[in-house]
Design a protein around this nucleic acid. Structure first.
Lengths: 144, 144
DNA sequence: TGAAAATAAATGCAGATGCATTGAATGTCA
DNA sequence: TGACATTCAATGCATCTGCATTTATTTTCA
């Protein structure tokens, strides 16, 4: 490894940056226009909702979201302050905690999805055929 | 428009976020490890180098980089303070200015590329065939 | 012409992020 | 066992970003 990228690789990298920036900006703009919090809140709430009532350990959520440890710690602070999650002590490991979504968290996640879903459709779905979207998803998966 | 995304669309969107995050993190980490500034500096310096000695108007650079106006203004401050660019008054429009790269800026851009290029190769090139990279680039272009 | 609108760029302030470190608890193993 | 290393999570500080507003200039058009 560690040579220079060829043209296609460079184009793919630049495209990745720009496409992500454009799509994210348009989706975030819709959320903001609807008076809703940013995507990172959605991602966290969704992981927690899928995790069920027991919740997740911060380090699990951190890995699921590809967040830095300190960023997750602070996101959890904000979510907790907003009443969307609660932190619970975990008896098996007194260093740790569980973060669990609250009913208010579930409700907000649902309301965010009502805006987020059409925003994804506008930013991605409307610009690709079904086959193209599937191909794109498969190729992007190889980068993770 | 404005319905719900189908599965492939959603997978493409999630893949876009995650792939971009993973690739960017690994590339930024290499730059940092080499004691070099972040990607945004590279992008700006490269645009300015391509623009030639006359430089670019801030609003031109802003559009080329998909930067917010205030972010570009501050990035320019930092680049200027580091001696990598210079701001020049423009006689035709006294509201405006030209931002031009300096020799030190060119030199830094070159040194950054020496790290950036292999980082792109590792994060993208090594994970895709040439054909896949080309396909990915083409699909991502449709999103911008 | 000259008042109102538009454009270029900077900035004050609040909030978010990155970095390094800390505090607390748990794990390891001679 | 008990010293040392590791893991979990929080935090102080500096930097960066987002938002709204400001200053200066140019454009528009009645």
């Amino acid at each position: 490894m560690d040579r220079k990228p060829d043209e296609a690789t460079e184009a793919a990298w630049i495209g990745l940056s720009r496409a992500q920036r454009v799509a994210t900006a348009s989706i975030e703009a819709r959320l903001k226009a609807a008076g809703l919090p940013p995507l990172s809140w959605y991602d966290a709430l969704w992981e927690l909702e899928r995790a069920g009532d027991a919740g997740l350990r911060p380090f699990e959520l951190e890995r699921a979201l590809l967040f830095e440890q300190y960023n997750l710690s602070r996101l959890a602070d904000r979510l907790e302050k907003a009443g969307l999650v609660e932190r619970r002590a975990v008896e098996a490991d007194r260093r740790g905690q569980m973060i669990a979504i609250t009913p208010a968290g579930r409700d907000l996640r649902r309301r965010m999805w009502a805006v987020y879903a059409p925003a994804i459709q506008a930013a991605v779905g409307d610009r690709l055929s079904a086959g193209e979207a599937a191909t794109l998803a498969a190729l992007l998966k190889k980068l993770v």
